[in-house]
Design a protein around this nucleic acid. Structure first.
Lengths: 141, 141
DNA sequence: TATATACCCGAGTAAAATAGTCAAGATTAA
DNA sequence: TTAATCTTGACTATTTTACTCGGGTATATA
C-alpha cells in the first residue's frame, strides 16, 4: 500500500499555499523553491487542483494561485481525489472464471476492502488542510 | 494509494487454506485452481509466508501447506508485512536540500503520514483471518 | 527402488504506473 | 513592450508490479 508522490506533493504545496496566500496569489515558482518540488511537476498537479475547484489562478505578472476555500473547509480527501490518488485501486473483478462481480458471487475478501476503504476515507474526511498549518513542529521551513 | 495483488492474493490464499486444512496439508495447485491465481505466483508468496512462520509446509506426495497458527490468532497485518505489503511507503526523507529527517526539521506533512500509518495499522491489527472465513456472503466458492 | 507429487529458490521479463521533463502558447501587470 | 505566470499536451526515464521459467530437493507410496 502506498501513497504516491503526487498526493504528497499536492498536500505539501497546498499547505504552503495556505501559509502564504493571505497577501495575494502565490506563484508556483515560490512553492517549488520552498518545498523542493519540481516546477514542471507542480504545474501538472495544480492543473488538476484547479479543475476540481481547489485553487483559483491569476495569470500574468504578479499572478499565481490562491485557495478556493478556507483551509479549514478543505478536506484532505478532496485533495487526494483531485490528483487521482485513489484510496482503493483494489479491484476484485477479475474478468476470468472466478471473478468477483460484487453481487451474487463476492470473492472471499470483497467485504474486507470495502471496510478498509471506509476506514481510510473516514480518516481523510476528518482531516482538514488547516490541521497541517500553523503547528509548531510541522511549520513551513 | 493502493494495495497490490500480492497482498490481496496472500489473504485470499490463506482464507482458502483456513477452510481446507482441517483434513491435512493443502497443495498450492488446489488453491491456484480454486482462487484463480497463478501457481508460480503462489509459490513466491507462500515462500515468504513460510519464512515469516505464517504457514508450515510438508514436502512430497500428499504434501502442501497448513496454517502455523489458528485463523483467529492471525492478524491481517502479519500477512501483509510478510509479503512486503507496506502500509507506509511514503518517505519524507528526500536527500536533497529540503529533506525531512524526522527530527529537527520535519516536513510539513510528516505527522500526517504517521497518523495515517497508525490508523491503518489499527485496522489491520484488529482484523483476523478468521473474520474472513465462514461468513455467509464471503464464503469460498 | 522408481516415480509422481509437491515444495524450494533464484533469475528473468513484460507491462504498467510513476515521476519528472519539455516546448509552445495565452494572459496580464507594470 | 516585456517579463512574469499560468495552460496544455506530449514525451521519456525509472521503478514497481505481476508473472514466468528452469532446475532443483524432499517424500509418500506403489
Amino acid at each position: 500500500m502506498k501513497l504516491t508522490s503526487k498526493g504528497r506533493y499536492a498536500v505539501m504545496a497546498l499547505a504552503d499555499l495556505a501559509n502564504f496566500n493571505k497577501t495575494g496569489p502565490v506563484p508556483l515558482r515560490d512553492i517549488s523553491i520552498r518545498q523542493g518540488i519540481s516546477l514542471f511537476y507542480l504545474e501538472q498537479i495544480f492543473l488538476k487542483l484547479k479543475k476540481h475547484n481547489i485553487v483559483q489562478s491569476t495569470r500574468g505578472s504578479g499572478g499565481g494561485y490562491v485557495l478556493f476555500k478556507n483551509a479549514d473547509d478543505l478536506k484532505l480527501s478532496e485533495i487526494f481525489s483531485a490528483v487521482d490518488e485513489k484510496v482503493k485501486t483494489i479491484n476484485c473483478k477479475r474478468e476470468s472464471k472466478k471473478g468477483c462481480n460484487g453481487k451474487a458471487s463476492k470473492c472471499i475478501t470483497h467485504n474486507l476492502w470495502d471496510e478498509l476503504e471506509l476506514h481510510i476515507n473516514t480518516f481523510f474526511n476528518q482531516k482538514k488542510l488547516s490541521d497541517l498549518v500553523s503547528k509548531k513542529d510541522t511549520q513551513i521551513r
